Simulated scan of single mutants.
Amino acid sequence: MASRRSPTARHRRLMAELSRLRKSSGLSRVEVAERIGSTDTTVWRYETGLTRPKPSDVSALTDVYGVTGEARDSLIQMAVEARRRGWWHQHRQTLKPGFDSYIGLEAEASLVRSYEPLVVPGLMQTEPYARAVTRATSMVHDPSEVEEQVSVRISRQRLLHGPGDPIQLVAVLDEAVIRRRIGSREIMAAQLEHLIDLSRLPNVEIRVLPFSAGEHAAMDGKFCLLSFPEPEDPDLLYLEQAASGHVPDDPEEVRRYASMFESLSALALDPEASTAFIAQMAKRFSNLSP
């Protein structure tokens, strides 16, 4: 997936590798700092992602850790890539805090597993539907900022179609997502038809969680799980609130949500039945009187 390298994901890998190498060396942050002529706080910031080290900084660290050859070159190149800016960087002021980081991680993911209780996931929204959702939920009132947020959402959808290997998307949508009218009936009907089109893609799976499933483990709200092509990169969990989003660091929490997603998938309709239900609701919206 070299065609979808992301600075955010490269930075995440780099900080994990620097932390791993230091621990393997048996050196403390103070000892490493002394050898590279820096401070232990700086080393800590490199390892926790608060500072993106320069390639020269990484070169000095590899000398301390005894890393040579291709492994050294790879880490230095990672530092170069981590300091670049993704296309989303210019839009970060109009996005909720934390969401720009999510976009950067999503850009290099191989698999997205998403549970949505209220609206169609951003990767699958039509532009009119996205505009209606953004207008209703955005904390800004400037039309130009609304349009910028919509543009970012639509731009992310290139992940489903390439270039390179398209991302795999598995979405579990609560029945409310399919029934709740967003925008006009025409907008909603077109959105549901778009879901049907997406379901035909080999890299997209859509499952509807029916009301008849009753209570379930994810009643607290939406979440998203990201998996990556490199085995060294662990899965990530993204949680979003009205004003912000964040990626928890606890691996156990990631495992809990992964188990939750499996539970939801088992309760949901299979892909064929889900598509049939979506088609039925699309037809209903199309036939509604204005």
Rank of each mutant, 00 (worst) to 15 (best):
A107N: 08
A171Y: 07
V112K: 09
I182D: 09
L173W: 01
I182T: 15
E106P: 07
Q125G: 03
Q191S: 02
Q168A: 13
W88N: 00
Q90F: 04
E116C: 11
I167H: 05
L195T: 15
R180E: 08
V112L: 10
T137R: 09
Y115R: 05
E108W: 01
S144V: 04
V112D: 02
V172T: 03
Q77W: 04
H141D: 09
E148P: 05
A107I: 00
S138A: 05
Q90D: 15
A190H: 11
D142T: 12
Q93V: 03
I196W: 12
D174T: 03
R180F: 06
L169F: 01
E186C: 09
E116T: 13
G183I: 00
A130N: 08
V170H: 10
L105H: 15
Q77L: 06
V112I: 15
Q168Y: 04
Q77M: 03
S101N: 14
H194W: 14
L173Q: 03
I187Q: 13
E175Q: 13
S144H: 06
A132D: 07
E193Y: 07
E127A: 06
A107H: 13
V120W: 00
P117I: 01
Q149D: 03
Q149V: 09
D142E: 12
L75Y: 00
H141E: 09
S184F: 09
E116F: 04
R179D: 00
P143N: 09
S114D: 11
V133Y: 10
D142C: 10
L95S: 01
M78F: 02
V80K: 01
R185K: 15
V120A: 12
S151G: 14
V146F: 01
Q168H: 09
E193F: 05
A79I: 01
S138P: 01
A171M: 06
Y115F: 07
S184E: 14
H141W: 05
P163H: 09
D142Y: 08
R85N: 02
E145D: 06
R158Y: 01
M188H: 15
D73V: 15
R92Q: 08
E175C: 13
G183V: 08
S114I: 12
G104Y: 09
T137D: 08
G104S: 03
R131C: 02
Q77I: 04
H89P: 01
V80R: 00
V177T: 12
P121K: 08
E148T: 11
P163C: 06
D73M: 01
G162W: 07
R179N: 00
L173D: 00
P117K: 11
G98P: 14
V120S: 13
L95K: 08
H91I: 11
R131S: 14
K96A: 10
R179K: 07
D165K: 05
I167D: 06
V170K: 02
A109I: 00
L192T: 15
L123T: 03
A82G: 00
A130D: 05
R85L: 05
V170A: 02
L118F: 04
A132N: 07
L105S: 13
I182H: 02
R180A: 12
F99V: 11
Q168F: 03
R113K: 15
A190N: 15
I76W: 04
R113F: 01
L123D: 04
G162R: 14
L95T: 11
H141K: 14
I154W: 02
M139W: 13
P166M: 13
Q77H: 01
H194K: 14
A132M: 04
A171L: 12
D142M: 11
R158H: 09
L111S: 07
